[in-house]
Design a protein around this nucleic acid. Structure first.
Lengths: 327, 327
DNA sequence: ATTCAGGCTGGGCATATGTCAAGCACCTGA
DNA sequence: TCAGGTGCTTGACATATGCCCAGCCTGAAT
């Protein structure tokens, strides 16, 4: 038994073993038992191998874009808001789920979108927020080929560690897929500090790249205390009050806008580090990822402002958006 | 029970239902039981839905290109034969499997390659043969976006019906993905007829397009009676004898070449309808798909002739190729 | 050399999945 | 209207998978 394992398995590296197991299972549709026999290990080990293969992203499951677009709500969103594409992830429960769960689900939708629409060798601007971070975490860059990622704002210290950390996860992806990160928070503690940071050559350079990416993925935030941006301390109750006075409905990349998507003139913006929404508009394909009933008004503002070319959202938000726009 | 099914499920089209089930299962990782509950149908039905979703290609499973390339044999093939890429599909059994099984497996590999390397809006030349037909059948064009396919030779009446038939399978794929087919067999019954067919404007036009595709997928055949081309009656025992006299090792698109990949001057070629191997060389990325011990010499000839930029083969053939080249 | 921690392995059980035969509703043609 | 057929549902069963636990090996610290 042991000798046979050395003969059979021993000469393969751990990665080759993973690959073999995954191929046998997902392509040849062998059962775990059969794989175990052929590889001379226990079925449990094969199960563990497959588990690992899924975790590291060796295997990825995608749904057909055609079908996704055939979803009725998707077609309506495209028509009503003149979007290039719209992806609506179906909800299962009627009752409102918690924000994090929604973000995770919609993030998966964003990942699905990127996985099928990213072009190798292209550049991808990465926005800020929990949902975006979910998107990046869920996207399998290995299947899509080398991509150059650039952050569109500061805020690496918040929700974006996945970008940096993912490089080590896959075997040698770092050769291919690169990431340029703005080394600053999204909001500095004072306007002066923000201005100083914006002058930094390293930051300036990334900002310049950020304006030139061919695709970008951004979240849409709400002007409330439970928003991630507030939870992380970039915004306090006073700020929220001011936002309410200005009739702000939401933000993208930390820039707040009203129901028509017009960016307001706010003190908060002076402390911000990142590209402007005007710059964002110049990016050929901007993918907005946001879901949940509570974000409907914010998303609507973003759509009216024309910042998004593609929207990834969930069912309930899509329905609400169409209701709001119909009235 | 019945009324609830009408309420819940009745208003969704069959396709939306399919999509929902697939999303819940593959993205949200719900169990079939949970999906059944939420969709108000039986678990068995959900199972059937998922089965259908897989069959029509709504869901597709891909392996990470990085890992595939990390496979040791793949790296060696690339190095030794100076290929852009090489995909080696692992074998499970030592004993030689039957040709059809090998073609199916390697074809799946080709499909995996195309799925991750096709570019939407691009054009794909499609060669002739059982393996190529497997590749096309296994490739999910829905996930990759619109592709324009062109046949590189005649022979639709033989092994290529999948190209035509697949259009009806997916919902509205025909809008996006197109296919131009040379309406002729790969070998006409006489040189005169072949010449006449080659003059046909419709055929000429497709041939012209065929030379201009940016990618192509072709098989590699052997000069033997059990080859598909012979089985379908395009070649008889006499032809095979002549091929042997000319020291032919294999063919691509019905053009036969020797161990160095040099195309021989054969009467058989006068009856052929399709682009020349010289034209094939001009295509930026030519993917060769062929596997099995018995095809090693043929593949080696093709590689020496420099016709292929990418090779998809199986393990045993890869090992044999490297052995042959080493001596 | 010894001991301990950590990680991996294989067995066994609970759960999830694939599949079959029987039954039911709906459609069709007489 | 009714008999027969078609296709879908259901429940039950066989199989496959996920998961936990105890045992083993390995490597490091003492």
């Amino acid at each position: 038994m042991k000798s046979s394992r050395i003969d059979e398995v021993g000469r393969w590296s751990s990665e080759e073993l993973l690959l073999r197991a995954a191929w046998f299972y997902y392509k040849d549709e062998l059962t775990q038992d059969e794989i175990a026999k052929r590889l001379s290990l226990s079925r449990a080990s094969v199960g563990r191998l497959l588990d690992r293969a899924r975790r590291v992203g060796l295997v990825s499951i995608q749904l057909d874009t055609e079908y996704l677009n055939a979803f009725e709500l998707s077609a309506e969103l495209r028509r009503v808001f003149r979007l290039t594409e719209a992806l609506v992830v179906p909800d299962h429960d009627k009752e409102p789920a918690d924000h994090h769960a929604i973000n995770a689900r919609v993030g998966l939708g964003g990942a699905q979108f990127l996985s099928t629409h990213l072009r190798p060798g292209g550049s991808l601007g990465v926005g800020w927020g929990e949902t975006v971070s979910r998107v990046i975490a869920g996207t399998n860059f290995g299947t899509v080929g080398p991509v150059h990622m650039v952050t569109l704002t500061g805020g690496v210290d918040g929700y974006l560690p996945t970008i940096v950390s993912f490089k080590g996860e896959t075997a040698n992806a770092d050769q291919a897929t690169t990431a340029a990160v703005i080394p600053a928070p999204i909001h500095a503690s004072s306007p002066e500090l923000a201005a100083a940071l914006r002058q930094e050559p390293t930051i300036q350079q990334v900002l310049k790249h950020a304006c030139e990416v061919d695709q970008a993925v951004v979240g849409v935030g709400t002007p409330t205390l439970d928003a991630t941006i507030a939870q992380l301390g970039y915004m306090n109750a006073d700020d929220v009050r001011i936002l309410a006075e200005h009739k702000i409905v939401g933000d993208i990349l930390g820039q707040f806008f009203d129901a028509n998507g017009v960016v307001a003139d706010l003190p908060l913006h002076d402390r911000r580090i990142g590209i402007e929404l005007a710059d964002l508009k110049q990016i050929p394909k901007v993918v907005g990822v946001a879901g949940g009933m509570h974000k409907a008004e914010a998303i609507l503002g973003a759509l009216r402002g024309g910042y998004l070319d593609v929207l990834v959202t969930n069912e309930i938000a899509a329905i609400r958006l169409l209701e709001l726009e119909a009235t």
